[in-house]
């Protein structure tokens, strides 16, 4: 078999076996248990939540992100193994949502890490979540979910933005060390 065939097979397999990081970053996590348990049962599609980022493929950002959480989220994201996908969950990850003027929550997740797919709503219904995951599976199948490649490519920019957010001061961030992410 050729290389492409292999990677196609790998994509088909990995889309049916997406393991999530068990990380409730915000209130959106409240709708995750129903999605994972008997009512909506995401395990039908091979999705289960894993304890540690090392084991997982999908990072689900469930809702608003305090800066303190963003630090942990970046750590978790970098500990995951490629290929990895990020799903932004709820309006808060898109533009801050309800907390557009809060001093402690970031407003646009895509500035800090590449997001493959967003789910709108506050909070999104389980059906919406399932739909998003099915779309993500579709994207993986077609090879469109390339957020992790983007993170490697624009690592410096992402790192700079993260540092800006972490330090709460834009003027302090000057130079970013080299690297391409883990």
């Amino acid at each position: 078999m050729r290389q492409e065939d292999w990677s196609k097979l790998a994509r088909i397999m990995s889309k049916r076996s997406l393991w999530m990081v068990h990380f409730c970053t915000g209130c959106g996590a409240m709708e995750m248990p129903p999605v994972l348990t008997s009512r909506y049962d995401m395990e039908r599609f091979g999705m289960i939540s894993m304890a540690t980022p090392r084991q997982a493929d999908v990072l689900l950002v469930t809702g608003y992100l305090a800066v303190k959480t963003l630090k942990r989220l970046v750590q978790v994201y970098e500990q995951m193994r490629d290929p990895k996908y990020v799903v932004g969950f709820g309006s808060c990850t898109i533009n801050g949502g309800m907390y557009w003027d809060s001093y402690n929550t970031i407003k646009d997740l895509s500035k800090y890490m590449p997001v493959d797919i967003y789910i709108a709503g506050c909070m999104p219904r389980p059906e919406a979540i399932i739909d998003a995951f099915l779309k993500l599976m579709d994207m993986i199948d077609k090879g469109e979910a390339t957020g992790w490649k983007k993170y490697h490519k624009y690592y410096k920019q992402y790192k700079r933005n993260q540092k800006m957010a972490f330090s709460y001061r834009l003027d302090e961030v000057k130079d970013i060390e080299e690297g391409d992410g883990k």
Binding site: T25, G26, C27, Y64, A66, K68, T69, R72, M98, Y99, D101, S102, Y103, N104, T105
Partner: peptide, 26 residues
């Protein structure tokens, strides 16, 4: 703690009495 801090009490001081209703339930 502090991973979920949104500064609700600050935000509520900036909003009208009625606007706070959708905020508090969060």
């Amino acid at each position: 703690v502090g991973y979920l801090h949104r500064g609700f009490e600050k935000l509520m001081e900036k909003r009208l009495w009625m606007q706070n209703v959708p905020l508090v339930c969060r």
